[in-house]
Design a protein around this nucleic acid. Sequence first.
DNA 1: AGCTACTCCTGGTAGC
DNA 2: TGCTACCAGGAGTAGC
Length: 285
Amino acid sequence: MPELPEVETVARLIAPRVTGRTILSAEAGWLRSLGGPSLADFEESVRGATIAHVGRRAKYIVLSLTRPGQPAQPSGALLVHLRMSGRLHVEPRSLPLGPYTRVALQLSDEHTLRFDDVRKFGRFTFTEDPLATLAHLGPEPLEGDFTGEWLHAALRGRQRQLKPLLLDQEFVAGLGNIYVDEALHEAKLHPLMSADRVTKAQAERLVDAIRMILSEAIAREGSSFDTFYRTPEGQPGSYQDQFRVYGRDGRACRRCGATVQKFVVGQRGTHVCPRCQRAPRGVGA
DNA sequence: AGCTACTCCTGGTAGC
DNA sequence: TGCTACCAGGAGTAGC
């Protein structure tokens, strides 16, 4: 599913098509996608609101709402999390909803903002206070405060394995299974190494790798390798062509030629070049 | 604190 | 061909 680059792509492409539109009504094909409230309560929260801005925080697409007549006054936000298989897109109202459309908002310009989600893990929720709802999230890896110095300090004293820590959205926001594997390979760090054994130089390398990989992936509109992730225009991203290790187990490392290996870390498939990424002591593979 | 297992869901595909 | 088992980009919860 979508990680930061994919979510960023969706937010950017959706923005010009929904900003300034007013929400006329809401429908839900799967109530749980709304994250708790009834459809009636959800609709009451959003009906008549105008989508003032579309942004991204971590893997959430944030649609900030205002009320007509008080454009300077925030009126809550829609938080869309695509999880594994969610798609957010805008279609003409005349186009029938699909079998996987979980939430649909009728907009004031004859279009419908649709949330489709095969696996139903995604969420399309309303919050009165987006800052509070998103307050638990860690720093944005593409912002200026995500530095090698910060990372080194944040890792100090933590006994966790590096990969699960990087996947923890409260530690750093936006990374998922693909880009963590890619960044660890680029920085030549093993996913199982203990966080507090990362040196300052390694932390700087890792920050550089994360920022570079995420930026390149955004430039290529994310990664698509099955029918799930598509941009709101229906196009696949192209960053999958650049994968260093993800999904390349059994093939040659692009940097050194050794065979990429796959194993499981924290129930997630994990890809590593055994030559570029030296295993910590006591780890066989 | 940090690890593992389990859960939410469906569809594609590898393997037999 | 057809069936089954397993796998998937996420993340919350519970138990040890």
